[in-house]
């Protein structure tokens, strides 16, 4: 008996006095990331990039916009870690500031499309009937639009720039988010706790905010993390085509484009931003992958 009491993990006949240990969801998620090395690497990349974006002025060694025509196409040195470009701007500093551009556009586009898409999807699923039909037809229409051509059209009409690009990318991400949220919410709606809420007279807003949203959000978060990678890639593509970020602002896509002309003379100019894009997309996708495994209840216990 004495042996029993010494061992705290044993819910022996001490009965009601002992309450079982608390299992935290966060610890489980942390465990998944620790177990899955590739997801951990993805997460670390994302964290490093976020730090770069926030503390860009401290991490960069030069002003990314300052030209120095006496020192163009400088080689790698202790002064310029990655050399300089055709206008003598420090490539390393431009890459650091480029993180800011990419992440700003990515975060704004993904969150704004997320909010709009999730609200639409949840309303469609919750109210059903006419609301459902209407919202689903709108998303059908949105999905039928060729995204790139619309962006080119908008850019052609009002010019490019960060605002237009962000808006265009956000617009394109609404329909898929809406669809996903709608599917999730429809699934969650079938649970008895939604019925229990109705039986106690819970209003629609409260129901959506406290019952449906928290349960639908986790998979959506995974989708949004992966969407970040896609948006970053799309922004780079647009900038590469010259309709994204306007020239002086450092943008990885634009840097690849500009460096292309000097690919033989100074290959770092396009290889480094290209690699940065790849890293960011990889980072978000891998982190998203890990997140999906972490929150998948069917894997509970297996990982």
């Amino acid at each position: 008996m004495a042996e029993n009491l010494n061992n705290s993990t044993e819910p022996a006949d001490v009965g009601e006095a002992v309450i079982p240990p608390h299992h935290s969801e966060w610890r489980r998620i942390a465990r998944v990331f620790v177990r899955r090395k590739i997801s951990l690497i993805g997460l670390i990349i994302v964290v490093i990039l976020v730090i770069c974006a926030i503390f860009a002025p401290f991490i960069a060694t030069h002003d990314p916009l300052k030209t120095d025509l006496r020192d163009v196409h400088a080689p790698v040195s202790t002064k310029h870690f990655l050399g300089t470009d055709e206008l003598g701007r420090d490539t390393y500093s431009r890459i650091v500031y480029g993180t800011r551009t990419s992440l700003t556009i990515g975060v704004i586009a993904v969150t704004s499309s997320g909010i709009v898409g999730m609200a639409m999807g949840m309303s469609a699923a919750y109210f059903g009937g006419l609301v459902f039909a209407l919202i689903m037809r709108i998303t059908d229409a949105l999905m039928a639009l060729p995204g790139l051509i619309i962006i080119l059209l908008i850019a052609g009409l009002v010019g490019g720039g960060i605002v237009v690009v962000t808006f265009a990318l956000a617009f394109g991400a609404i329909a898929p988010t809406c669809r996903m949220m709608c599917g999730q919410a429809l699934h969650i709606k079938q649970n008895d706790y939604v019925l229990a809420g109705k039986a106690m007279g819970m209003g629609s807003v409260r129901m959506m905010v406290t019952q449906i949203f928290p349960n639908a959000f986790a998979p959506l978060l995974v989708g949004m993390t992966m969407a970040m990678g896609m948006v970053v890639l799309a922004e780079a593509g647009l900038s590469y085509l010259g309709i994204g970020i306007e020239p002086p602002t450092p943008s990885w896509g634009a840097m690849v484009n500009e460096g292309q002309a000097y690919i033989l003379k100074n290959p770092l100019l396009s290889i480094v931003p290209g690699g940065a894009i790849m890293m960011m997309v990889f980072g978000f996708n891998m982190a998203g992958d890990g997140l999906r495994d972490a929150i998948d209840p069917t894997l509970r216990g297996a990982i």
Partner: peptide, 29 residues
């Protein structure tokens, strides 16, 4: 009363002991 034991943390004694109404000193030892 009570619940079946957690199969991970099994006591060395009879697993039904905490719920048993007939238990004796011998059962606990």
């Amino acid at each position: 009363d009570g619940m079946p034991p957690d199969l991970i943390f099994m006591p060395p004694t009879c697993a039904f002991l905490p719920r048993c109404t007939y238990k004796t000193k011998q059962c606990q030892e």
